[in-house]
Simulated scan of single mutants.
Amino acid sequence: MLEQDADVTISIIELSSTDYSVLKVAVTLLERNRLKVRLLEKGNTAGTLVLIDFDTPSGKDFYTHFNYARHRAMLLLSTETLNDHRNLVLKKPLRVQTLKDVLYDLYLGLNPQLKTVQLSKQPEVETSHLPSNPFNPQNNLFFVLFKALQAKSVIQVFCSPHSPLFVNTISGIIASSISNETLRKIISSQSYAFKSTKLSSADFEILAKGQVIVPLNQVLWNAALYGSQGQLIEGHSPEIPIQLKAWPNLSRLDFEPHHMKLASIMAGKALTLKQIHLKTNLPWETIVGFYNAAYATNLIVINPANLPTTPTSKSAPPVKASLLAKIANRLKIAS
Rank of each mutant, 00 (worst) to 15 (best):
K198Y: 06
V288M: 08
F158P: 05
I187W: 03
T18D: 12
I213M: 09
F143S: 13
I242D: 03
N306V: 07
I10Y: 02
P161C: 13
P311E: 08
L207K: 00
K92E: 14
R70N: 14
T286M: 00
L106G: 15
Q118Y: 02
L273R: 00
T116F: 14
L110V: 11
I242K: 01
E126W: 07
S177H: 07
A208W: 03
A46G: 12
V212N: 03
N281W: 00
E181S: 10
K42C: 03
R86H: 11
I186Y: 02
G268N: 14
T309M: 12
T79A: 14
S196Q: 07
V27S: 05
S163L: 14
P257D: 05
F194P: 00
N180V: 11
L77Y: 10
N136M: 08
P123W: 03
Y68K: 15
K121C: 14
H258N: 07
L94W: 10
E239L: 05
M1K: 10
D203A: 00
H236I: 12
S153R: 11
I327F: 10
S78P: 04
A321I: 10
L324G: 05
I206V: 07
L250T: 15
N180S: 14
A270V: 01
S163F: 09
D254G: 10
Q4C: 14
N222V: 07
M74F: 11
A151I: 13
W221I: 05
H162I: 09
L40V: 09
A294I: 07
A151N: 12
L30S: 13
L15Y: 12
V102T: 13
P283M: 10
F194N: 02
V301T: 10
I186P: 00
Q150D: 06
S177Q: 12
N87P: 15
F158N: 11
C159F: 00
K314N: 07
T81E: 11
S58I: 12
N133M: 12
S335K: 04
K121S: 03
L220Q: 08
P257Q: 02
I155F: 01
D5M: 15
A296W: 04
L75E: 10
V319H: 08
I240T: 00
A73T: 10
P57R: 09
T272W: 03
P308M: 06
V8L: 08
Q211C: 06
M266R: 07
F66G: 11
I178V: 13
L130K: 04
Y226C: 03
H129C: 06
A202R: 03
S58K: 15
T197P: 01
V214P: 02
Q150A: 10
K147E: 14
K147F: 10
